[in-house]
């Protein structure tokens, strides 16, 4: 099955990003294709490489980057939401990109499921 994910909250403030990640991992492990994670609202701040959490905490941006590298999951931040929040190509972690809402429309169409995580 092909699954798209829509993530609407930023890292750390809410558990949404953690749940989305765990869900994506489990889906991939079960043999599903996680096609893309689309970041909206504050969700776009999931992929800034400027984040630098304490050593003993998870690095959420790095984790999304790893998922992209290992499993080809596209990590896509909405351009309008990114511009509002100071997220630009310069700060993106590897494996992530900025794109338009038209891409989310495509993701919704081409996947069997779109699962939203937010707050």
């Amino acid at each position: 099955m092909k699954i798209g994910i829509l993530l609407k909250e930023g890292p750390y403030n809410h558990q949404a990003s953690d749940t989305a990640f765990k869900f994506a991992e489990a889906a991939i492990k079960k043999g599903h294709t996680v096609d893309a994670v689309f970041l909206y609202n504050d969700g776009v701040t999931n992929v800034t490489k400027l984040m630098d959490p304490p050593q003993d905490d998870r690095n959420i941006a790095a984790r999304w980057s790893e998922l992209s590298k290992k499993h080809g999951v596209e990590i896509l931040a909405c351009i309008a939401a990114s511009k509002r929040r100071g997220i630009s190509d310069d700060v993106l972690v590897e494996g992530s990109a900025i794109t338009g809402l038209g891409t989310l429309t495509d993701i919704a169409i081409r996947n069997d499921r779109l699962v939203t995580f937010g707050d």
């Binding site: 099955m1 765990k22 869900f23 489990a26 599903h32 499921r113 699962v115 995580f117 937010g118 707050d119």
Partner: peptide, 19 residues
Amino acid sequence: VDYDGFVALVEEHQVNSWF
């Protein structure tokens, strides 16, 4: 259910996520 169970439910159903 664990995350696998979550995925299994998504296999069976479209999802309506309430925040």
